[in-house]
Design a protein around this nucleic acid. Structure first.
Lengths: 341, 341
DNA sequence: TTGTAAGCGTTATCAG
DNA sequence: CTGATAACGCTTACAA
């Protein structure tokens, strides 16, 4: 069947297409009560559905927001199995949809640019999760839309950053362990890259140690992928070869789960034999047993904040902001850290 | 900066826009080697990026695939925290992206239609997860694009269905428990609605019971939300008031985790005091402890199959198919079921 | 307040 | 094989 167009509506209502367009776009001030009613009636009767492609072509606005999600290196699958990202998306999508925007999700191939997609689809805005090479951000700057960075510490005022204080988090976590009497504290972490979330957490760890006059031993830093699997590996190794450790700080909950299971595989019970602290407080923390003591951040709030920012800028309610919004964190005590001595 | 258009490319290459368009769309047979080279060169030099809105407007093809995800009733958030759906999306997105399609995710408000979005965005195809009211499907039929249903048992040949045999799964799970010596088997399940996945699994449960000449006791069926929380609730109740049960079959892994934790809260250990069987084999099954015995299905493969189908139909490699593709399932024995007697 | 009409960037038809 | 050119459906000056 042929598509109902704005022309059909205009005809039926006995007005011009311009009038209809005005109504469609909420510029109702430009139209008299009477025509407004006629147009609404016509839209209703014809069951008119606007064509966003045409709208986008004519107006350069697409009502589309791109969300970039990190992906696994090998099979290029989105890292959606990490609840951190899926939680984030939940918040973003819900908020955007309620404001008339749609969400285009995608990963970005290594070394590829997101500029393409942005231009192809006339994206109105974007949320970038994950960390990329410098060139990625450079490319992105060329495009003139509001962009929110979720976990990059890149210092660039072309982008809005919605962050937590990761260094503080790492510090608080480690300090918490120290306060519970631990002095031999291992760190299980992702690759420590400059300007990455992981680096900050690592820095916080070091800071807490030095503040407590504890020796920083690089051998106690287990650096690998930010994944359950690597945590498992590290846990096993710790159980085998680092029996003097009384606590481990894992820089993400997923890794912490891995560590706990790895330790268990190696014959150590958490928290009886060794304490484990996580970071993120992903929703799984409720399900996993024993319940993980961790650094809490409100992930959904972060998604919400990202969405809100974009909406406000696009609606003209807020100016482009290249600053940082810092969301609060706190220590969530549960059952994987034991007081010793 | 002004956008580079096909016109610029044509000019630079000294050919017509038509020629460029042909090249862009892979109809290279229509163009001589020489012009082809010139055009490629011009595209390269100008760094030309096609505008999909314009393309979509002119061609009625958008290279956009809609993915509908169920959402929570109260706060309208996508059910992405359920790894079943996020796993699915991983598979779908990866495959589609590699074939030049983009993924638009969204939930659908209760009572709302997806037809709107489909028309607005000129979606080329869609994957529908979750179960909706009949009217939802009726609406959807009006649109003429390939659509894949992931977990609906609706019987309608406007849609392609990619399923597993849920009844068989329920049957196998229950039978497995029976074979391990269990005779008092509770069922923790989502709301049993006609034509839902859950109903089929429930039917399988009953079938296995009756086949083994076991009495079906409706009091042992705990029916609630398909969620960790409800599982927890059911687990607690079972621990308190149904001590004669030796096994529980939960119709989804998430529920099974809830059940196990609920039982534990009630003082029962799994599998020592009571056995628990899940369904789905979501990726968490690896992480959760004790490791869940469950009905395995390859969730990513299901996403892949959905994507492949759409791609093949859209590429004209396959006809619209209103049939059912059945993916295999199997019992995955891990550590939550104990042989008794 | 309303209508006209010129784009927006592509595709695709139809002559050359 | 190539090139004009008319759509596609909508927005938005600009004119009335």
């Amino acid at each position: 069947m042929k598509r109902t167009t704005i022309k059909d509506v205009a005809e039926k209502a006995g007005v011009s297409t311009a009038a209809v367009s005005y109504v469609l776009n909420g510029r109702e001030g430009k139209v008299s009560e009477e025509t407004l009613a006629k147009i609404h009636k016509a839209i209703e009767e014809l069951n008119y559905i606007p064509d966003f492609s045409a709208r986008s072509l004519a107006s350069k606005r697409s009502s589309l927001i791109g969300v970039v999600i990190p992906q696994t290196e090998n099979d290029k699958r989105l890292l959606l199995e990490n609840p951190f990202y899926s939680d984030l998306i939940c918040g973003i999508e819900a908020e955007l949809r309620q404001h008339g925007y749609h969400v285009l999700i995608s990963g970005v191939e290594k070394g590829q640019s997101y500029l393409d997609l942005t231009m192809q689809r006339n994206l109105d805005g974007a949320v970038i999760m994950g960390i990329y090479q410098e060139s990625f951000y450079e490319e992105l700057k060329k495009v003139d839309i509001p962009i929110v960075l979720i976990d990059s510490y890149i210092n660039d005022d072309s982008f809005k950053k919605i962050r937590i204080d990761d260094e503080l988090g790492g510090y608080l976590a480690t300090k918490h362990l120290i306060e519970q009497g631990h002095t031999n504290i291992g760190l299980v972490t992702g690759m420590i890259r400059k300007d990455g979330v992981v680096e900050k957490r690592y820095l916080g760890y070091k800071k807490a140690l030095s503040e407590a006059n504890l020796f920083y031993d690089h051998d106690l830093v287990f650096e690998g992928q930010v994944s359950y699997e690597y945590g498992l590996e590290a846990g096993i190794e710790i159980a085998e070869r680092h029996k003097h450790l009384t606590a481990v700080f894992a820089t993400s909950d997923m890794m912490a789960y891995g560590v706990i299971n790895g330790l268990r595989q190696g014959g150590l019970q958490v928290p009886d034999d060794i304490s484990v602290m996580g970071f993120d407080d992903i929703s799984l923390s409720d399900i996993f047993y024993p319940k993980l003591t961790t650094v809490h951040q409100d992930i959904k709030a972060r998604g919400l904040a990202a969405a809100r920012y974009l909406i406000d800028v696009l609606d003209g309610k807020q100016n482009l902001d290249s600053g940082v919004t810092l969301l609060p964190i706190s220590i969530k005590e549960r059952d994987t850290v034991r007081r010793i001595k």
